[in-house]
Each structure stands twice: as structure tokens, then as C-alpha cells.
Amino acid sequence: MTRDQTAQGPQGERNVTRRKVIVAGGAAVAAVSVGGTIAATANAAQQAAASGSASGEACYRLTSETTEGPYYIDADKLRQDITEDREGIPLTLRLKVIDSETCKPVRNAAVDIWHCDALGLYSGYEDSSGGGGTPLTGAPTDAPTGTPTDAPTGPPPGGGGGHQEPTDDERYLRGTWRTDKKGFVTFRTVFPGWYRGRCVHIHTKVHVGGTWTDAGYEGGTTCHTGQFFFDEESVLASAEVEPYSTSTTERTTLTEDTIYDQSGTAGGLLKLTYRKNAIGRGVLGTITMGVDPEATHEGTDL
């Protein structure tokens, strides 16, 4: 399918929205180390990936498309370190983007990521995100009792629904960076927390066909909108570390989540590497995303 065909719909030709990523302070933020162990692991992963490319890489299925969610902000900062002042377990996120049909790397794509902080708050939406509940002691085991009497407020607990306009000027844990010639992009952030109705996750978009300028990234189309997920073992381990351990928000498990399709890597499940019983020192998360560069997936109609 060509881009022209993809752009056509029942209502006629689709207008491609111009997007512009603003460079914070006129320059990209330098990446910071998350500890010798994780840095060494990331380097080893990069070398292994390069070796795999040379020997032939198995083709990937298309990575699952998901809803954009209510907290996306178009015009994020062009940077690899998105942590700002947020406390939490250091997370190095190393992503690879490939064409799912040819298995060739998608170079110069703009990859967005955004997620909540350790206590479930999204920048730009601190007044409306987050929630309350009981302290985390493991997977939820009790079924709810009684009949709800109050109309729900705030965003849908499943993370879907239409886009909401930002309520504040904060932009932590949001950023955009380009894939290299091998399709790789790396971000520095913190392990996300959880909030009402959703398991631990990170949102992502992949944009292609645009132009990189001194001001950022302009034009193009969004060929993938998805989410990355974390296994239960790692989430329970993170819950023993501050500030996650102070959360009073009831947690939704991976198997209970309404967005994750339970398909493993194809559904966005990250491969996580960290020192057992010492997750607080840092985590490396890796995944290969199989996308269709000719498609358009904004994630607003799911």
C-alpha cells in the first residue's frame, strides 16, 4: 500500500498534520550514565545486535498498534535523557525500528516516548492523572464489592479515550529522538509507576517521512502508535524501592490490563535486564519494533 492510498479514507484525502519538535534550550540534552552495570549491558546489547545484523536477522511481526491515550503532547522536546527532576529507578530504553516486511532498519525515524512518573503522574496533566487506592502488596486478589454510585471522573481507567488538552506546563518524562542507520534509538528515563486502571507501561510513536531541522522534526506521517509493557516480576521488584513503595494506588496487573494484548514481544513486552535483588541500581529495557513505514497509525481511533 502506498502512502497516497493510506492517506485516502471515506471522507476523502487525509491532511497530514505537520508536527514540530522543539529543541529544549536550543540543544539536545546529553545522555547520562545510569551506572556501570547497565552501561556495560547496553554496550553488550549493541554489539550483539550489530553481530545479529551481520549474520541475518529474523523478520518480526508487526508490533501491535494501540491507543494514543489521553496524555499525548505533540511538540515534545528533542532529547534522549527525559528524566529531568523525577525520582525513580534509572531505566535505559534501547529500541530498534525495522520494516516488518523487509526486516531492514528504519533510519532517521522520529521516535516519541512518554510515560508517568514513579507515582503515576503525567507531565502536562498533573491535576488529572494519578489516583488513589491501597498500598501495593502484590497482585490484586479481591473482587470489588458493592455498586458504584458516583459518576466516574477523570480519564478512562483503561488509558483510552480522546485526547485531553494539557493542564500545566511540565514536560518531564517526554522526549523525541532519531533512529540511527541501524534503526536504533536510546533513551534515559526512570522506571514508570502505575495509576488507576492500567498496568505499568510507556507510550511510543514512530514518525517517518519528515524533515530534521535545527528546530526539530517537521512533517511526515505516524506509522506506529504503541505501548511498551513490563513483566510482573520486575514491577513487584520495583515496588520495594522508594518512591514506588510509597504509592497508595491500587495496581492493575499485566494480565488484567485492557490495552496489552498478551502477545509478548509483538504486543510491546520489553526484555528487561537488571541485577537480581538490586533493581534500584538500574534497568535496561530492549525491544525491536516491526512497523510498516507506508502505513498511518495515529492511535486516535482505537
Rank of each mutant, 00 (worst) to 15 (best):
L136N: 02
L121W: 14
T141M: 06
P135M: 08
Y125K: 04
H115A: 05
D142E: 05
L136S: 00
T134L: 03
A139M: 09
V111T: 05
H115F: 10
T145R: 09
L136M: 08
L136V: 15
G130R: 12
T137V: 14
Y125S: 11
A143F: 14
T134G: 02
S129V: 10
G131V: 14
P140M: 02
I113Q: 01
C116E: 14
L119W: 02
S129E: 07
T134N: 08
T141H: 03
A139V: 15
P144D: 07
D142I: 13
T134V: 10
P144Q: 03
V111F: 15
P140S: 00
P140N: 03
V111W: 15
S128P: 07
G138E: 06
G138Y: 00
S129W: 00
A110Q: 06
T134C: 03
Y125C: 08
E126G: 02
A110R: 10
D127Y: 15
P140E: 04
A143L: 15
S128F: 05
T137C: 08
P140C: 00
T141W: 02
T137K: 04
S128Y: 00
G124N: 00
E126S: 09
T134H: 12
A109F: 07
S123V: 03
W114L: 06
G132F: 08
D142S: 09
P135N: 07
T134Q: 14
A143P: 10
S123M: 03
A110W: 06
A118F: 13
P144F: 15
A118P: 01
G138F: 00
T145P: 00
C116A: 15
V111S: 01
L121Y: 11
L121K: 13
G146C: 12
G130I: 14
A109L: 12
V111N: 04
T137E: 03
G131D: 15
G138V: 11
G130H: 13
A139F: 05
H115M: 10
Y122A: 08
T134P: 03
G124W: 14
Y122N: 01
D117W: 15
S129L: 09
A109G: 12
A143V: 09
G146N: 05
L136P: 10
G133T: 01
D127R: 14
D142T: 15
T141C: 01
G132C: 06
I113R: 03
D112W: 13
G146A: 13
A143Y: 12
Y125I: 02
L136Y: 07
G131Y: 00
P135F: 05
G132L: 11
E126I: 04
T134M: 10
S129Q: 03
W114D: 06
W114Q: 08
G138R: 06
S129H: 04
G133Q: 03
G132M: 08
A109E: 09
Y125F: 15
L121Q: 11
P135Y: 08
G130D: 10
T134W: 07
A118V: 07
V111G: 03
G132W: 08
A139I: 06
S123G: 02
P140Y: 05
S128N: 12
T134A: 04
P144E: 12
A110V: 09
W114K: 11
S129A: 00
V111A: 01
G130C: 09
I113V: 14
D117M: 12
D112G: 08
